[in-house]
Design a protein around this nucleic acid. Structure first.
Length: 455
RNA sequence: GGCGCGGUAGCCAAGUGGUAAGGCCGAGCUCUGCAAAAGCUCUAUCGGCGGUUCGAUUCCGCCCCGCGCCUCCA
């Protein structure tokens, strides 16, 4: 069953298939900047890309090459390192580790290659060198190298911002730090000359000490690990311009060939109706949600509740909804027998929805429709395949078990004894006391468990 | 100002030219000493006004409201 996905460049829904003869599907996904914990908006993009990865794995087994970079040198990482008076590599290592831990908790498959910008300085310099020689770049007075946007006819095709109006309302442009150095405000840095604020974070180049600009890293790493032309390039919508537009310009001018066959951008996660930002104070991290008692898997589910190409409203209600939905799925899974089944792929509609432009909410809808209809009668394999594609780990679904304080445990013991003695009045009174203390007592035939009262 | 997206039940959210998936919450019921779990049932006419059409939530126009991007933010 073909996977169809919207393409940002042509605005059409195109089938995903490897373009090259070796049959390998080349997939590049713009990764995080490692200077702080990624927030859940970042993870929306990474979870969505993980579903793409999973669909590709199912469709082209063993023939998928997924590359996702780590931006480990830029203004933010350097500033963080300088502020903390630590080596850049140490700071980025710390946040890389944290990113990996969060991704694992969200059940995201690791990319096959995870290149870093600092690990590819040479490749970036080489590309810039070619661009200089071809006349697509120039060295400014300050020692920085800029890409000459006017040298690339195709500029603006992706973002459809053909000619930037440089006259009216360009107050922002004038404030750009390097505005005076560039020949044109649209030009962007390929190599940034070293500045005192950068500290020790600089590399040698034919144009003097400095560091690579942001965009060139993806062009260079994509070229090195996937070749001049890739099948799919993805990221959040905010990367559409200028990041991806600039990547296209660099790569195509350098390599002389098409950069990517397919572009895909996922939309923003909204909190309180707005894009998450520090200034608005509406930013969540995975750790913060876990601290509130939610499971990472509930976040993954919540992030899949909306169509990837539409803004999604997130709230703690979403987390509650996701947690409950996961519990239902987990209980349902327990009722399935390996041998049972209707002799067909009952959960096929789930995959169908995902193959139809990654319609995750429709997929979840189909999942529950089938769960409700076929309770217990379907083949576990069909269910598991759908769950795999969505990347839900039902075993990890339960929130971490909280440990009840000794006083609560003692109350629970008393109540259990009262119940065994059929002193129901006492048992009910003790249950109330436990509830007052913030704990729910769940009875089973052979015992009980305690969990925090759900809010 | 330029480019783009969206307004569907209390909340989240699919979808289709022929009278609206699903999840959560809520209500009622069954079961169970109680609670939980499980099961059953119930809850919308799709921002507003026009137009096209036999028929529009779905197509077109206008209006209102909201959101995103516009040089380094997923």
């Amino acid at each position: 069953m073909p996977i169809r996905l919207h393409d940002s460049l042509t605005r059409q829904t195109l089938e995903l298939k490897p373009a090259q003869k070796d049959g390998v599907y080349r997939f590049y996904n713009c990764g995080p900047t490692v200077y702080a914990p990624a927030h859940i908006g970042n993870f929306r993009t990474f979870v969505i890309n993980d579903v793409i990865r999973r669909l590709l794995e199912l469709e082209f087994p063993g023939k998928v090459k997924h590359v996702r970079n780590l931006t480990d040198v830029d203004d933010k990482t350097i500033r963080r390192a300088q502020d903390e008076q630590r080596p850049l590599a140490e700071v980025t290592r710390q946040w890389t580790d944290k990113f990996h831990a969060d991704c694992a908790a969200l059940n995201c498959l690791p990319p096959h290659v995870e290149p870093t910008a600092t690990g590819h300085i040479h490749e970036q310099v080489d590309m810039i060198d070619v661009l200089m020689k071809k006349g697509n770049a120039y060295r400014a007075a300050d020692g920085s190298v800029y890409f000459k946007v006017s040298s690339f006819d195709g500029y603006g095709a992706l973002s459809r911002v053909k000619e930037r109006e440089l006259q009216a309302g360009s107050a922002m442009k004038a404030t750009a730090a390097d505005a005076d150095e560039k020949e044109d405000v649209s030009d962007f840095a390929l190599w940034k000359a070293h500045k005192p604020d950068d500290g020790a974070n600089a590399w040698d180049s034919p144009w003097g000490r400095g560091r690579p600009g942001w965009h060139i890293e993806c062009s260079a790493m994509s070229k090195k690990h996937l070749g001049d032309t890739i099948d799919l390039h993805t990221g959040g919508v905010d990367l559409l311009f200028p990041h991806h537009e600039n990547e296209i310009a660099q790569s195509q001018c350098c390599n002389g060939t098409l950069f990517s066959h397919h572009w895909y951008h996922s939309e923003h996660l909204l909190v309180d109706g707005k894009k998450m930002s520090k200034s608005l104070g509406n930013l969540y991290t995975l750790d913060e949600l876990v601290a509130k008692g939610f499971s990472p898997m509930a976040l993954r589910y919540a992030l899949l509740m909306g169509h990837p190409r539409k803004q999604l409203s997130f709230s703690l209600d979403s987390m509650h909804a996701a947690e409950s939905a996961l519990t239902t799925l987990k209980n349902f899974r327990a009722t399935l027998l390996p041998g049972a089944g209707l002799g067909h792929d009952a959960f096929g509609p789930v995959l169908q929805a995902l193959h139809d432009d990654l319609n995750t909410p429709a997929a979840l809808g189909a999942l529950f429709t089938i769960v409700n209809r076929y309770a217990g009668e379907v083949d576990a394999a069909s269910f598991d395949r759908a769950i795999f594609a969505l990347g839900l780990d039902l075993n990890a679904a339960a929130a971490p078990q909280a440990t009840a304080p000794a006083a609560v445990t003692a109350l629970a013991e008393k109540r259990w004894a009262a119940k065994q003695a059929k002193d129901f009045a006492a048992a009910d009174a003790l249950r109330k006391e436990l509830t007052g203390a913030g704990w729910s007592m769940l009875d089973r035939k052979d015992g009980y468990s305690l969990e925090p009262v759900k809010k």
